[in-house]
Design a protein around this nucleic acid. Structure first.
Length: 200
DNA sequence: AGCACGATTAACT
DNA sequence: GTTAATCGTGCTC
């Protein structure tokens, strides 16, 4: 059962934490599934957040963030990488959650091929690694993750104990001014903790 | 029109 | 720990 629009309509940081443990699923053209459990997320909230792409106002690149919640915001960076975000809050307010890492669960062999034979341990432990593993690019920008026929969506996964969530500063914001640079809007759950719950 | 740099990764030393 | 790869975007002139 796919997570519905209401799940994404809440405050971004709440959604960022709630996404930990959820299943990110990619259905490929040939019907094969690739899936993983989300283990790290990051919140980007509005035009006042100087670490958020929305700080520059609405542009061709970041327009998806202004759209309805539950849609994907995929962008290209560093001249070679695609990063996946999930749009949050109400339509018209630019905010999103960056999916930074997942724990591979299904379609691992397919992921390994796309990741050029890398060991499972480092298949999807970075924001650009997971888009590589799931074959996500700009074609997914603006896709409705709540639609019944989208080839990318989210599902319930394993329950996560809120006390086990670790908050840290967001990654890679080098020339972003304080307090945005150090504010702890990066959330992570230990993969060991998730694996433990998987066995239940 | 030109330019600095990025919500990164991989391959080095 | 350091650095090259690689190019679209947004900012400055």
């Amino acid at each position: 059962m796919r997570l519905n629009r209401d799940f994404f309509s809440h405050p971004t940081l709440d959604v960022a934490k709630a996404l930990l443990g959820k299943r990110l699923v990619r259905v490929e053209e040939d019907g094969v599934l690739s899936a993983g459990l989300i283990v790290e997320t990051e919140g980007y909230v509005g035009t006042d957040d100087m670490g958020c792409h929305a700080r520059a106002g609405r542009t061709k690149r970041n327009r998806s963030m202004w759209g309805a919640p539950g849609h994907a915001y995929v962008y290209f960076t560093y001249g070679m990488h695609y990063l996946l975000n999930v749009v949050t809050e109400m339509e018209g307010f630019p905010a999103a959650v960056l999916i930074r890492a997942i724990l591979p669960i299904e379609g691992v062999e397919r992921m390994r091929v796309r990741r050029r034979g890398k060991p499972e341990r480092i298949l999807t432990d970075g924001p650009a690694k997971l888009t590589q593993a799931l074959a996500l690019d700009l074609a997914f920008d603006g896709v409705d993750l709540c639609s019944v026929d989208s080839t990318l969506f989210l599902e319930e996964g394993v329950s996560v104990d809120p006390d086990k969530i670790v908050a840290k500063p967001r990654v890679g914001l080098f020339s972003v001014p304080e307090p945005w640079k150090s504010i702890e809007w990066n959330y992570r759950i230990q993969t060991a903790e998730l694996k433990l719950r998987l066995d239940d």
